[in-house]
């Protein structure tokens, strides 16, 4: 009787999670409203998935055919480090957005620029973003490690239950 919830729990735990995008910045730059999302905030060293929503400032309708370029710049003792990536619909799950995977190489304060070309208008949105140290890999992948001790604990319980379990038979008829 208990089997199927166990199976379904195991099977469906993962797909239940949403994408949980967080708003990194939201600015009005006439004639557009620009919102930038990240898969985690604050940003950390390593790869981050960024997505941009471009809307008309008047009416908030989405701008579908924009060219969006994301740029991170940092002055490191006179040497400028720059990371550039085009954001496209193809790289976004939600096709209203323009997505890009960007790898930020070092921590610190980065100048973040979003360049948008659309409907004969060119706008640039500027922001300063603090990038934190790289998250330890274990932080993200811990479920893939934890399942081992969990399975071992379940096995130990299984053995104990088996040892304790005695089949009960109905009393023999005289």
């Amino acid at each position: 009787m208990l089997l199927w919830p166990v199976i379904v729990a195991a099977l469906f735990a993962l797909p239940a999670f949403g994408d949980g995008s967080v708003v990194l910045l939201h600015q009005r730059a006439d004639p557009f409203d620009v919102t930038v999302f990240a898969d985690h905030a604050p940003l950390t060293v390593g790869q981050s998935n960024l997505s941009v929503m471009v809307q008309k400032a008047a009416g908030h309708s989405n701008v579908p055919d924009a060219h969006v370029m994301l740029r991170f710049e940092k002055d490191e003792g006179g040497r400028i480090t720059e990371v550039v990536a085009p954001a496209t619909h193809a790289k976004a799950t939600n096709k209203l957005l323009y997505g890009a995977a960007i790898t930020v190489p070092s921590e610190g304060n980065w100048k973040f620029t979003t360049d948008i070309d659309a409907q004969n208008a060119h706008i640039t949105v500027l922001a300063q973003l603090a990038v934190g140290p790289a998250a330890p890999p274990m932080k993200e992948k811990w479920p893939l490690i934890v399942f081992v001790p969990v399975a071992i604990v379940l096995f130990i319980i299984n053995r104990r239950l088996k040892r304790r379990w005695r089949p009960t038979y109905p009393p023999a008829r005289p």
Binding site: L11, P15, H89, T93, N94, K95, L96
Partner: peptide, 29 residues
């Protein structure tokens, strides 16, 4: 992207692992 409707219809996020789990459940059943 042509329109909001087209965007709404094409925004599928099929994660292979989730799909594999659902297919496994169907196969077992």
């Amino acid at each position: 992207m042509e329109s909001f409707g087209a965007a709404a219809l094409t925004s599928w996020d099929i994660r292979p692992f989730s799909l594999a789990l659902l297919l496994a459940a169907a196969a077992v059943y």
